[in-house]
Simulated scan of single mutants.
Amino acid sequence: MGAGMIPSDYIAAAGLSFRPLPKALASQQGRIIAHLRRPDGVDLGCTADLTQEIALYETPQGDPPLFVSYYTTDTPYEALAAELRASLDRHHLPHRIEPVASRGSWVANTGLKARVIQAAWQDSGRPVCWIDADAAILRPPTFLMGNPFDLAFVRRAEWEDISYLIYLNATEAAGKVLAEWVRLCDEHPNVWDQVLFSLAWFRIARDTALASQWLNGGVSRIPRPWIRDIRDRALYYPFGRKIRPFIDQKQASRRLKAYVNASARPKDEIGSDDLSADYRAALAAYDFNFDPQLDAVVARRA
């Protein structure tokens, strides 16, 4: 793991601990925030309520990762990436943000993500954190500093893996997931990168000891009316009722996808909504006996 720390020590800072995964899944308190895959034994899980998650996120335990991103040239993402760079510089966070030529569609452009991350991960020899170009740092993300997990990312509703923020440690296991993600993106340019990232995680976790942290979506602020920011600052953050966000996730892709696309969405484009019910259930239950082929992961279309 990273810098002499192991996941159990890291979560202990917030009074948390691991237990056998079946007990964690059966727990009615909080949600599973971390998973230790043990292919030759019993997997472990850590559950936490919101107060415990906040305590974990607010405790820096080491150096920040290298923040990695890219933007497509001659598109509105170029200006957004400049805002991201400025926010990283303001908080003295190391970064590597690269320009790339557009491949003509939003999905094809996002397929470049895995290779850009892999190059930075290999060149730097240190933990890296992907962050979308249409984001900005609101305050230093302490939960990524000295983080000993192989990977950390948002897993929503127990099955939907979100790729706007992905931490990859400088570990062999993280490298295996990254290599599989790159391979899948090359093979399936019509599939959303986060669908293939989820599949890469699942395939590698079947046979590899892998330590994963499921970040709370509350670490990011999403577009909303300004009055809600005022309300949260006054009534929620001071009392630990919500996570005070670290990242401003502008979700510009929802506005700019049509701009970047050279044509309408291809009929064979596959996104998170296309994942099969069986695969979603396998992710939620940590069932690694599920068939890890793309045809099984995607629901059949009429």
Results as ranks from 00 to 15, higher is better:
residue 2 G to D: 08
residue 3 A to E: 11
residue 7 P to R: 08
residue 10 Y to H: 05
residue 12 A to P: 12
residue 12 A to M: 05
residue 13 A to H: 00
residue 15 G to E: 15
residue 16 L to Y: 06
residue 19 R to V: 07
residue 23 K to S: 01
residue 24 A to N: 03
residue 24 A to H: 00
residue 27 S to C: 05
residue 28 Q to L: 11
residue 28 Q to H: 08
residue 31 R to V: 00
residue 36 L to W: 06
residue 36 L to T: 02
residue 37 R to F: 00
residue 41 G to E: 09
residue 42 V to R: 04
residue 44 L to S: 09
residue 44 L to G: 03
residue 48 A to I: 04
residue 49 D to Q: 08
residue 50 L to T: 10
residue 51 T to I: 01
residue 51 T to L: 02
residue 56 L to I: 01
residue 61 Q to K: 15
residue 63 D to M: 00
residue 66 L to K: 12
residue 68 V to I: 03
residue 71 Y to P: 14
residue 72 T to V: 15
residue 72 T to K: 10
residue 74 D to Y: 07
residue 77 Y to M: 07
residue 79 A to H: 05
residue 80 L to F: 12
residue 81 A to E: 09
residue 84 L to R: 11
residue 86 A to P: 02
residue 86 A to K: 08
residue 95 H to F: 10
residue 95 H to N: 01
residue 100 V to C: 07
residue 103 R to S: 05
residue 109 N to P: 01
residue 112 L to A: 13
residue 113 K to S: 15
residue 116 V to F: 09
residue 118 Q to G: 05
residue 118 Q to A: 03
residue 120 A to H: 07
residue 121 W to V: 01
residue 124 S to I: 10
residue 124 S to P: 03
residue 124 S to T: 11
residue 127 P to C: 08
residue 127 P to D: 10
residue 130 W to K: 08
residue 138 L to T: 02
residue 138 L to R: 04
residue 143 F to E: 14
residue 143 F to L: 02
residue 144 L to W: 09
residue 149 F to V: 10
residue 150 D to K: 08
residue 152 A to R: 06
residue 154 V to K: 06
residue 154 V to P: 04
residue 154 V to L: 11
residue 155 R to V: 06
residue 157 A to H: 06
residue 161 D to I: 06
residue 161 D to Q: 01
residue 162 I to H: 07
residue 163 S to P: 13
residue 167 Y to K: 09
residue 174 A to C: 03
residue 177 V to Q: 05
residue 178 L to E: 12
residue 182 V to R: 08
residue 183 R to V: 02
residue 187 E to R: 15
residue 190 N to E: 14
residue 191 V to M: 04
residue 191 V to P: 07
residue 193 D to F: 13
residue 194 Q to W: 13
residue 197 F to I: 10
residue 198 S to Y: 15
residue 199 L to K: 15
residue 200 A to N: 03
residue 202 F to R: 06
residue 203 R to V: 14
residue 207 D to V: 01
residue 208 T to S: 13
residue 209 A to Q: 03
residue 215 L to E: 01
residue 216 N to V: 03
residue 220 S to T: 14
residue 234 A to V: 12
residue 235 L to Y: 07
residue 238 P to E: 11
residue 239 F to I: 02
residue 240 G to Y: 05
residue 241 R to C: 12
residue 241 R to S: 12
residue 245 P to N: 08
residue 246 F to T: 09
residue 248 D to G: 15
residue 251 Q to E: 12
residue 252 A to D: 15
residue 256 L to W: 03
residue 260 V to C: 11
residue 261 N to S: 15
residue 265 R to W: 04
residue 270 I to Q: 05
residue 273 D to T: 02
residue 277 A to S: 06
residue 278 D to C: 00
residue 282 A to D: 09
residue 286 Y to K: 01
residue 286 Y to S: 04
residue 289 N to V: 12
residue 291 D to C: 14
residue 293 Q to D: 00
residue 295 D to N: 10
residue 297 V to T: 10
residue 298 V to D: 10
